[in-house]
Simulated scan of single mutants.
Amino acid sequence: MGAQTLGQEVAERLRRDLADGVFSLGEKLPPERELMTRYSAGRNTVREAVRGLVALGMLEVRAGSGTTVSRIDGRTALAHTVSERPMDESGLEDLVEFRLTLEGRAAQLAAERATPEDLDRIRERLTAYQNAVRQREAVYEHDVAFHRAVSEATHNRLFLDVIDTSSQLFQGAMRAADHTSEDILKAAGEHAMIAHHVLMGDAEAAGQAMRAHILAGNERRLKGTGEGQHRQEKP
C-alpha cells in the first residue's frame, strides 16, 4: 500500500479528535465549512474523511440530523490503523512486533478458555490447512482461518476484530515468509505445535509456540530477501 491520501490523513486527525473527546458521543459534527477550516482541507477531502469514518461505524449520517458521533472506542480505529500500515520493511517489522503481542497472548488465552466447540474448530481449521499444504493448494486463507480460530477461542471480541479487519495484511506477511515448499511445510509443523498446546490447555507453551511461529516466519522472509544472511554476517 502506498502513502495515505489527503482524505485518509484528515480521517486520522478526525479520529484522534473523537478519541480525545473533542466531539462527544451523540454530538453532531460541525458544519462542513468549519471542518474544512479546522483540518485545512478542501470540501472533497473532508467528505472523503467523513465517509471513511462512517464506514468504520464511528460516525453516522442521520436524515435531518446531519452527521453524528456514533461510537468512540479503540477497537475499530485500532484495526483500521493496523490494516493501513504500508507493507514496506518498516511496516512488516511493525506487524511482527504487533502479532507477537496480540497472537502470543491470544494463544495463551485460548488454551485457558477454549470450549469443546472452540477446540473442534481449531482442529478443523488445522486439518484444512494441512490438507491444502499436502495438495499444494493455496494455503493462506486456511492459514488466517487457523489463526482466527485460535483468537475466537479467547472469547475476547477485540482479538477477533483485529484479525478480521487485518486479514489481508496478515496474508501478505504470510506470503512473504514462504519462498519454498519447505518453508510451507515448516509453517505447517509450527501450526500443529500451536494447536497441540492449545488443545492440551498449556497456556504458557501455547503462547511460546505462537511467538516462535511468528518469529520463524519472519526469519524465513528475511532469508528469502537475503536480509537474514546479511544480519547474521554482522559482527
Rank of each mutant, 00 (worst) to 15 (best):
E112W: 05
P235Q: 11
G52I: 05
V144I: 14
A106I: 04
T5K: 13
E48Q: 14
A205R: 15
L78Q: 09
R231A: 05
M58T: 02
Y39E: 06
T45W: 03
S166N: 10
R157C: 00
Q208F: 01
K28G: 07
L25W: 10
E219W: 13
R71D: 04
R175C: 02
H179K: 14
F146M: 10
R51Y: 01
E97M: 09
A187H: 03
A138S: 13
Q229P: 00
V50T: 09
E117Q: 14
R231M: 08
Q229D: 05
R62Q: 12
P30I: 07
H155T: 04
L92I: 08
L29D: 03
D120G: 13
S151C: 14
A195W: 01
R121F: 01
R221Q: 07
L215Q: 12
T115I: 05
H230S: 11
T76I: 03
I122A: 07
E27I: 07
A203P: 04
A63I: 12
R113Y: 08
R99N: 03
G104D: 08
P86I: 06
L119M: 13
Q168L: 14
Q130H: 12
S70R: 14
R13C: 04
P116R: 10
R231D: 03
L56W: 04
L222H: 07
A145T: 04
Q130D: 07
